[in-house]
Amino acid sequence: MATPAQWIEGARPRTLPAAIAPVLVGTGAAAFLDGFVWWKALLALGVALFLQIGVNYANDYSDGIRGTDENRVGPLRLVGSKVASPGQVKAAAFTCLGIGAVLGLVLCATSNWWLLAVGAASLAGAWFYTGGKKPYGYRALGEVAVFLFFGLVAVLGTTFVQAEELHWTAVAGAVAIGSIACALLVANNLRDIPTDMVTGKRTLAVVLGAARSRQLYAALIALAFILAALSALATPWALLALIALPLGVKAVRVVVSDAVGPALIPVLKGTGLTELVYAIGLAVGLALGG
């Protein structure tokens, strides 16, 4: 039986900035449009957090039963480490995804019902990332899904349910947040290239190779800060996002220095922190600019 601390670790708290950041930016963009609604922002945050934790448990379950996590380098995996049964982890995944779905239904009821289709796609994306007979995370499509769901969908959805309209600053913020979220996954998969190749997990990092994956990581981080500078055309306050630049530069330096294995683990924390600080700066900047 896994301890509460192990369940918390299995939820992968270092990935939670990827859920919080898009809601912050989306809410900042709504405030820029004078459409901020605090309780809708909280509902959106609840949806994002429960879906993120749900997908983390789902990945733990699916990778665990395939044996992908048996010899991995990195934080605890519940099934792979055999501290929890596959059934328990699967139940935890469905519970979290279910709570996220209920909160999403409430949000749809207060906005537009066509958002149900977006929610259904998000749930399917969460499960089939590593679940099912042909998981797309094993076909080098993980980064595409992360960019779509943790960038475009999460940011623009948060903005729309509050302001009921969009602005190009929201799109720029969505692309920026999606890019950093992708960089987080690239760093994770870069670390796992040796074990993923053995187990047949064909991630984008495996396809590109270590050298190109390092270049991709740096390019994604750079793109986010370029977009922050571009957003300054709408309001100079958007430059507050640059407070995350030192964190991003530090993480890029580690990645491009040919670090491997355990040396890349701090990059995950650093990238998550970069995303969160970037989101706070951009959200505050957009709100002030509005």
Score class of each variant (00 low, 15 high):
3 T>N: 07
13 P>N: 12
14 R>I: 06
15 T>F: 01
16 L>Y: 07
21 A>W: 04
25 V>S: 13
27 T>H: 01
31 A>R: 03
39 W>T: 08
39 W>L: 09
40 K>N: 13
40 K>C: 00
41 A>V: 11
42 L>F: 09
44 A>C: 15
46 G>E: 10
46 G>D: 14
52 Q>M: 14
55 V>D: 09
60 D>L: 03
66 R>K: 10
67 G>C: 04
74 G>I: 00
78 L>F: 01
83 V>M: 04
83 V>W: 00
83 V>S: 00
85 S>T: 12
90 K>D: 14
91 A>F: 02
93 A>C: 12
97 L>W: 07
98 G>T: 08
99 I>H: 04
100 G>N: 12
101 A>M: 11
103 L>H: 08
111 S>A: 12
114 W>M: 09
114 W>I: 03
114 W>E: 03
117 A>Y: 02
121 A>K: 08
121 A>H: 11
126 A>Y: 05
128 F>Q: 10
130 T>L: 07
131 G>T: 09
136 Y>D: 05
141 L>A: 13
141 L>M: 14
142 G>F: 03
143 E>N: 14
146 V>K: 06
149 F>K: 09
152 L>H: 06
156 L>C: 02
156 L>F: 00
161 V>F: 09
168 W>A: 14
171 V>L: 15
173 G>A: 04
179 S>Q: 08
182 C>W: 06
184 L>W: 00
188 N>V: 10
195 T>A: 12
198 V>I: 14
199 T>K: 15
200 G>Y: 01
201 K>S: 08
205 A>Q: 04
208 L>T: 03
208 L>K: 07
209 G>D: 05
214 R>E: 10
219 A>Y: 08
219 A>P: 12
225 F>I: 00
226 I>C: 02
228 A>W: 05
232 A>G: 04
239 L>K: 01
239 L>A: 00
242 L>S: 00
250 K>V: 03
251 A>L: 02
251 A>P: 13
253 R>S: 06
259 A>L: 03
260 V>C: 10
266 P>R: 09
267 V>H: 05
270 G>H: 06
270 G>Q: 02
273 L>T: 12
274 T>P: 07
274 T>C: 05
278 Y>Q: 03
281 G>W: 00
281 G>H: 01
281 G>N: 04
282 L>A: 05
283 A>M: 13
285 G>N: 01
286 L>T: 13
287 A>V: 05
288 L>K: 10
